[in-house]
Design a protein around this nucleic acid. Structure first.
Lengths: 123, 123
DNA sequence: ATACAACCTAAACCTAAGTTGAGGTCAAGT
DNA sequence: ACTTGACCTCAACTTAGGTTTAGGTTGTAT
């Protein structure tokens, strides 16, 4: 199945200009074009894009994602580099989750205090 | 106990210019100054700062934090607004954690595939 | 006395991650 | 024929969140 940039934008909840921006930054080198020049996403492209979105949404900067993509296009001998990068990113994400959970606790404590305060002042 | 901006920066792992920037954006209205003009953080200020850092690190934009701070300085009748805002933020953070956990799974699958690929090519 | 460190302000500068605008191509429907 | 919609490029613009720079004050150690 093939998709246009507009269809992908809707599916993945990104803007069209965001997708074009990623392409310009070299994040989507696997994209084909029609004779007319329109970008074409096939299943493989969609799959790769999903990985890229995943890395982006977990805080990896675009430059770093580009390095990963460049390695991916460079064949199997780059597997060790990619593996190392993504393992490091896994650690980062695990830390992020943990810190966010601690922050969540603090937020919930604050909620409890504000609720207590509301009950007081309603008397 | 009172602290200087430099001490706070080290404690909270922020830059001094970041703290001054937050102050300029109106995030630290509780700060006192010495006669000389130096910022002074006391225990209350430190506590409030920690909440602000917590909101910031869970993705709340500075403008929104400022709204919260403004309400906080405006006395008890703003408790409902503050409560509503922070409850909404709790939901956002819960969603963020969940999405990040899903992304983590995808990253771990990718790691597994890359490791598999390395084993193959080492034969 | 003088040098150094730690603080200050205001304004200019910077980077990442996009968005917007002008001007253009093409295919489909009326 | 012509309008509409979906795509295109390239360059300029925007926004958030800071950092840097230049110039200045103050308190402490040598």
């Amino acid at each position: 199945m093939n998709y246009t940039i507009g269809q992908i934008a809707k599916m993945k909840d990104l803007s069209i200009s965001q997708l074009r921006y990623y392409d310009n930054q070299g994040l989507l080198p696997f994209l084909k074009r029609t004779e007319k020049g329109d970008r074409v996403f096939n299943e493989d492209a969609l799959n790769f894009l999903e990985l890229i979105i995943c890395l982006k949404n977990t805080g990896m900067p675009i430059k770093e994602i580009k390095q990963f993509v460049d390695w991916s296009m460079n064949g199997d001998y780059t597997t060790p580099q990619r593996l190392e990068m993504i393992k490091q990113h896994e650690i980062t994400v695990l830390q992020l989750i943990q810190e966010t959970e601690e922050n969540l606790k603090r937020i919930q404590k604050k909620i409890a205090r504000l609720e207590h305060e509301m009950n007081k002042s309603s008397n």
